[in-house]
């Protein structure tokens, strides 16, 4: 028998999906900001002159990138209450875990971006008496950041996808909301199809935007405008 599609119930329940989407957006935004901050610090660690700082950075990046995000999320969900004594909160676990996850990947973007700046820039900065911090802050990072933008865009897309992991610890994001609706209405086919479409409609333009920006950068030959 052919299945009879019926999206009518979603027409009624769309405010719920919207609330779920708002949860996704909130988690995405907070984790992205924290992750980019952590990544900046670790990325600088990874390029710092000190060997200890470099090793700390490497251990962090390798540990996070070589374990599944789901295991990290569940780990933080159980470990945070243990360390802090607070009650387990899905929101806190999701934000901490996704920030740390994004931090490791964006640290690599910062590192690659910093490494792409020619040695001469560092040397020139040192020649006029800048220390490591000042070289990084005033000379290298401003030039490197532009080149990193497409990679950060892709990272933001990956983070948006990763927020769905939070549905496993019952944080009210889009997929979790959809799961509740699908079970309530007994219409998984329409509900999950709708979620698939929502994600594609949102992420596809962003993805094209990244490609467009990358091409534009390449055409201009990086950011050499001097």
């Amino acid at each position: 028998m052919a299945y009879e599609w019926d999206f009518a119930f979603l027409w009624v329940l769309w405010p719920h999906l919207l609330v779920g989407l708002a949860g996704t957006a909130k988690l995405w935004a907070v984790a992205l900001i924290c992750g980019l901050g952590i990544g900046l610090v670790v990325g600088i660690f990874r390029t710092a002159p000190s060997r200890i700082l470099r090793s700390i950075g490497t251990v962090y990046v390798e540990a996070i990138r070589n374990t599944p995000g789901l295991i990290q999320l569940i780990w933080f969900y159980y470990a945070i209450p243990m360390v802090t004594g607070w009650q387990a909160s899905a929101w806190l676990a999701a934000v901490v875990s996704l920030s740390i996850y994004t931090g490791a990947y964006s640290a690599e973007i910062y590192r690659a971006g910093i490494a792409s700046i020619e040695r001469g820039q560092w040397e020139a900065a040192r020649a006029i008496g800048f220390g490591f911090g000042a070289q990084m802050r005033y000379i290298v990072l401003p030039q490197a950041l532009m080149r990193m933008i497409p990679a950060f865009g892709n990272r933001a897309i990956e983070l948006a996808k990763a927020t769905t992991l939070a549905s496993t610890i019952a944080f009210g994001e889009l997929l979790y909301t959809a799961k509740v609706i699908a079970e309530d209405q007994m219409r998984p086919l329409e509900t999950y199809t709708a979620v698939t479409v929502i994600f594609t409609v949102i992420l596809l333009p962003v993805s094209y935007g990244c490609v467009w920006f990358e091409r534009r950068l390449a055409r201009r030959g990086g950011v050499h405008r001097d």
Partner: peptide, 17 residues
């Protein structure tokens, strides 16, 4: 651009229907 977990849920819950 689609999400792995959503695809899995779709294939598990929706595709059989």
């Amino acid at each position: 651009t689609s999400v792995a977990l959503v695809l899995i849920c779709w294939c598990y819950y929706a595709l059989p229907i």
